[in-house]
Design a protein around this nucleic acid. Structure first.
Lengths: 338, 338
DNA sequence: TTGTACGCGTTATCAA
DNA sequence: TTGATAACGCGTACAA
C-alpha cells in the first residue's frame, strides 16, 4: 500500500507536506505542490480514509437503515429503493458515502444505532423504524439522524413522512362524491405508522359524511398481492357487496385487480378500486389503477440533506416535514352518479 | 466516546485485556472476562472499527458499484435493487457491511476502484461495468471482485451473467415454431453487453432457420418505455407490418404494449410481443407480457459469496458463471398455426 | 514555506 | 494470565 511517507520520500519532502497538498491546507510552494501531485499520480496514492476517520473521529459516511418485515420483502425493497435513490442523489453532491444495512428480524431486538457507535457513521437515516426506544440516546449523544415514515416530538432528530391523512381523505371524499356508499377497506395485519394513518383518516371522513362502515367491510391483508387476492375473494362471497374497495397499499390493490379478473368481477364496472403508494405499475394496468402518489425520492433527498446539515452543525435543531401527495383517480374508479 | 481504556480503567485491568475479551483471543481468566463484559455493557462500549481497520488494513465492508446511465435511471434502479437484495442477503450472514455507491457520469472517467483504495473496501461488486480498463490493476493488487453482467478471461475476477443467448434463442425459436416469419426487433442505442448478446443470438437463430430479417424491422430504443412507444409507432406506419416484435428489454416492451393500445393495435391478435428481463409487472398486464425471467437476486448472492470467499482466501481463482433463465410465453404471443 | 512530536483506538509482539 | 511497547496512516499543534 502506498502511504504519505512513500510519496514524501519520492518527492523529497516530509510527509506532512503531502498531507497539506491533498487537503489543500496550509501553505505549500506551488512548485512543491506540483511535484507532490505528480508523485501521487505516479504511485497511485490514495489517502487512507480509515486513518483519516480515526483521527477526526468521523468517517464521511451515513448509514441507511431500512427495516424489513420478512413478509413483505420484495414490496418493501422496491419502496426503499426509491427513497435510497433520493439519498444517493444528495450524498453524491456532498462526497459522502453510504452504508446500506437492511435490518431484518425482531424489531425489538435490533441494535439500530450500531452503525453510529461501531462504524462511526456520521449520521443515520432510519426507514420504518419507531423512534421511541432510540430517542434518548440520540439526544444524549447528539446523533444526526432522520426518521422516514415516522413522527416524533421536536428535538434533535428529523422526521418526515408522506401526507397519508390527506391522501386517504382525498380518496374517500372522491368515492363518496361519486356516489359510493358501500366502501370496503383493506387494512393490514401489523400495520405500519403510514398504514394506520391512512385507515384513521378514512374512518374520519366516513364519519364526517355519516356513511356507515359495517364491520364486514373491514378486511386485513399482508401488504402483499396475496392479501389483496384473499380480500377480493371474501368480497366476492358477500351477499351485499361493496361498490368500491380502498386498499392500504398498491401491491394489495394489484392482488385485488388480478384476482378479480379471475373471479369474473369487472373493475370498475362491478366494483371500483383505489390503491395507495404510487407504484409505477399502476399506470400501466388496463384500466390504470387509481392511487395516491408519494414523492419517495424527495423524502430520501431531504433526509440526507437534513442529516448532513446536522453533521456539519452539531447544534442544529431537528425538523419535521410532511410531504404532499397527489391522488390520481384513474380508470379503476367508476362514478355511480349519472 | 468510550474506548478500551475507559473500560479497562473501570474494570481495573489494562486495556489490552479488554481487547482480548472482545476478540475472544488469548487467555483471560473467566472471572476477569465477566467483569470486563459487565463494564462494556455498562459503558455502552463499542470497538472502533476505524481503528480496527487501520490496524488490519481492512474494513469489513464490500462496495456495490452499479453504473447508472442517466437516461435509464428508474429502469436501472429497479433492476439493480434486486441484485442488491441478493448481495445483502449473503452479507447479512457474513457480518459484512455494504457500501453502496451508484456511479453516474461519463463511464470512461469514473474511478471504479476508488472504494478499494480509498475506503479500504475489502471487495467490490461491479454491475454493468466493463472489466477491460480495470483488469490489470485488479490482477496486480489482487482485488477481490465480481463483475455482474459481464464476461472476462479467467483470472482473479469473478464474472457472472444471465444466459442471454439461450433466452433469446428460446424466444426466437418459439416464435418461428408458431408460424411467425416477419419478426421485428427492438435493439438499443448504446447497447450493454447483455443487450448485444440477446441481439446476436436472435440473428443467429434467424439465420439458422433461413428466415429473412429485413433492415426495416431492426428498430432502436433507449432502454425505456419511450423507446418502445417510438418503435411501435414506426411499425404502425409500415406497409408490411411484422407479425411479432421482440424487445431487448421489458421496459421497452411495456412502452410498445401501452402505445399499441392507444394506436388501436391489438396485442397479440394484430402483433405478438415478447420482452426480456423478467420484470414483475409483466405478469400483471392484460394479457400478461411474455418475457425471459432472470435470477437477479441469485446473481447478487453469488457475487457476494465469491467476493467474500476471495477476501478470506487471497489466492482463490476467479470463477465464471452463466445463470439459467426461463422463457415464459404468455398472453402476448399468438400462434399463427391453426 | 517546511518539519517534528504527538495522539486518534486498536491489535500484535514480546516480556513478565 | 496479564501487561508494556510499538505500529497502523493520518492530521494538528507547535517549532524552525
Amino acid at each position: 500500500m502506498t502511504t504519505q511517507k512513500d510519496v514524501a520520500k519520492k518527492a523529497g519532502v516530509s510527509f506532512i507536506t503531502v498531507s497539506r497538498v491533498i487537503n489543500n491546507k496550509g501553505n505549500v510552494k506551488q512548485k512543491t505542490r506540483e511535484r507532490v501531485l505528480k508523485v501521487i499520480e505516479e504511485l497511485n496514492y490514495y489517502p487512507n480514509t480509515l486513518a483519516q476517520g480515526l483521527n477526526a473521529n468521523k468517517s464521511n459516511t451515513i448509514s441507511i437503515l431500512p427495516l424489513l418485515r420478512e413478509i413483505a420483502m420484495m414490496e418493501e425493497i422496491s419502496f426503499y429503493r426509491r427513497i435510497i435513490a433520493g439519498v444517493e442523489r444528495y450524498c453524491c453532491e456532498s462526497e459522502i458515502d453510504i452504508l446500506l444495512s437492511t435490518l431484518r428480524g425482531d424489531p425489538e431486538k435490533i441494535d439500530y444505532l450500531r452503525h453510529y457507535y461501531l462504524r462511526k457513521s456520521d449520521g443515520l437515516i432510519l426507514i420504518g423504524i419507531s423512534p421511541d426506544r432510540l430517542i434518548d440516546k440520540i439526544e444524549k449523544d447528539k446523533i444526526p439522524c432522520s426518521f422516514i415514515g415516522e413522527k416524533g416530538r421536536p428535538g434533535r432528530a428529523n422526521y418526515m413522512h408522506s401526507d397519508n391523512r390527506l391522501g386517504s381523505r382525498q380518496i374517500t371524499e372522491y368515492l363518496l362524491k361519486n356516489g359510493h356508499k358501500k366502501i370496503a377497506y383493506i387494512f393490514t395485519e401489523n400495520p405500519s405508522t403510514d398504514v394506520i394513518e391512512r385507515y384513521e383518516s378514512f374512518i374520519e371522513v366516513m364519519e364526517e359524511n355519516r356513511t356507515a362502515f359495517p364491520e364486514e367491510y373491514l378486511l386485513y391483508g399482508d401488504y402483499m398481492e396475496k392479501g389483496g387476492r384473499k380480500a377480493i375473494r371474501k368480497i366476492a362471497a358477500m351477499k351485499d357487496r361493496p361498490t368500491a374497495i380502498i386498499s392500504s397499499t398498491d401491491t394489495m390493490a394489484l392482488g385485488v385487480f388480478d384476482e378479480a379478473k379471475k373471479l369474473g368481477i369487472d373493475i370498475p364496472n362491478d366494483i371500483s378500486l383505489v390503491g395507495f403508494d404510487g407504484h409505477e405499475f399502476c399506470q400501466f394496468m388496463t384500466p390504470p389503477i387509481a392511487t395516491v402518489i408519494q414523492d419517495l425520492e424527495g423524502l430520501g433527498y431531504l433526509a440526507a440533506k437534513l442529516t448532513i446539515e446536522q453533521i456539519n452543525d452539531p447544534d442544529k435543531q431537528g425538523e419535521s416535514h410532511i410531504f404532499p401527495v397527489v391522488f390520481e383517480p384513474r380508470g379503476t374508479v367508476k362514478s355511480l352518479i349519472d
